[in-house]
Amino acid sequence: MNRTALRACATVALTVLTSMAHAAWPEKPVKIVVPYPPGGNVDVAARLIAPGLQAALGQPFIVENKPGAGGMIAGEQVARSEPDGYTLFMAANGPLLFSPLIFKREAYKWDRDFAPISSVSYTPLVLQVKPGLPAKTLAELLDLAKKDPGKLNMASPGAGTTNHLVSELLQSLTGARWTTAQYKGNAPATTDLLGGQVDFNFDQISVALPYVKDGRLRALAVTTAKRVPSMPDVPTFAEAGVQGMEAATFTGLLAPKGTPPDVLNKLSAALTKILAQPTIIQRFDELGAEARGSSPEEFTRYLAAEDARWTPIIKRAGITAN
């Protein structure tokens, strides 16, 4: 057999072996890296899907929390991992799309360094005000902000969070202006809103619901296309007179770029089934979120649209982590 034929046989053999290896995946535990501490929205979503993935694919799925640098510590770890399907990134809007821009450190880019697998959940936000603020509707809040620009204070859990970006979007759409008070996390921002030190904020419905229900805060509008069942009396922004304010905090699963497509498709198919289970749907609903899986292609298109929508707002507003 000549040298060319030997090379051809070797190539075929390698292809077959690689295909067999991918078909056997997973053969050991899989790590899901979360960019936040335990207990938050992203961490809870990861822990809700991990048992189902283990049951479907036959290996443990271990959640590992790696907070810091706006989620970039976790993101960079996964981006630099072997693309073998054994290290995954449980991402959200900020760590995946915005942190490299806001921190001015291009440690990774979502479309260059990651392979999207599937969305997991979507959590809408609500604009809520302290009870003492003389604004019973969104229109009244915007009137206050326009009459005295910069006087009202909006509590943000951090620069470049979805909560912050939605606030910037509303200002750009309406011409209203307020002062943004940046906090190191959602808990202190919520505490100051409840204490009346700030006037309003945007928060995930999962966090805001108890305070709205007991009257400690007043909800003016939700960032959904239709009213939220848990807040049936609160209008959407479109109903309240402002178009283009649909937004949500997403969670989703990604792998390092170069991960074999059959591995991505196995994960996506498993997640789609898990997220359609009534018990999982109910668990996410209790958190104020919608459980929703997608194909790698669908999730990629969604991320591209989110990137195109929010990046110009970040740049126009000059948002940085400093």
Rank of each mutant, 00 (worst) to 15 (best):
P116Q: 04
P131E: 12
L125C: 00
V120Q: 06
L144M: 08
P51A: 06
A135H: 05
K151A: 08
I62S: 11
G58I: 05
L133P: 01
V42K: 00
E106H: 11
D43H: 15
V42F: 02
R47V: 03
V44P: 02
D148F: 04
L141R: 02
G150C: 07
N41Y: 15
A56P: 00
D84N: 15
F89G: 10
A115H: 12
K66T: 09
F114C: 03
P157Q: 11
G150S: 06
D43W: 08
L127D: 09
I73T: 14
L142F: 10
V78R: 09
K147Y: 03
L138R: 10
L96S: 05
L142E: 09
K136D: 14
R80A: 14
S99F: 01
V42A: 08
G68W: 09
L97T: 03
I62M: 09
A50S: 15
G94E: 06
I117P: 09
A74F: 07
T137I: 13
Q54W: 00
T161A: 02
L57M: 14
L133N: 07
I73V: 15
N41C: 03
L133A: 08
L144K: 03
L125T: 00
V63R: 05
G71D: 12
L125P: 00
L53K: 11
N153K: 14
G40I: 13
D148H: 14
E140M: 10
T87P: 03
V63H: 06
D143H: 12
L127E: 09
A107H: 04
F103S: 02
I49E: 04
A155Y: 02
D148E: 15
A69V: 07
L138Q: 09
L88W: 12
V129H: 02
V42N: 14
V44N: 13
G71C: 09
W110E: 02
E140C: 03
G70D: 03
S156C: 04
A56F: 01
W110F: 15
V42M: 05
R105T: 07
G85Y: 08
L133R: 05
A45G: 11
P67G: 10
P60L: 13
G70H: 00
P60D: 13
L125N: 12
A145G: 02
L133D: 08
F61W: 12
L152E: 00
S119N: 12
N65S: 10
G40E: 05
L125H: 15
K109M: 10
D148G: 01
L125I: 00
V63Q: 04
L142M: 06
N41V: 15
A115M: 14
V129I: 14
P95Q: 12
N93G: 12
G85A: 08
D111F: 05
Q54K: 15
A74S: 09
A79Q: 09
T87A: 09
I102A: 01
K151D: 01
T87K: 00
N93W: 05
I102P: 01
K104E: 13
E64V: 15
G70W: 00
L101E: 12
M90Q: 10
L127A: 14
D111L: 04
W110A: 03
G58S: 05
P51V: 15
E76P: 04
L127C: 13
F98M: 02
Y122E: 13
D84I: 05
F114P: 04
K130R: 15
G58W: 01
L101F: 02
A45Y: 03
P124N: 10
K146H: 07
V44F: 09
K130C: 00
K151H: 14
T87M: 11
G132V: 06
V120P: 04
N65G: 07
L133I: 02
A107Q: 05
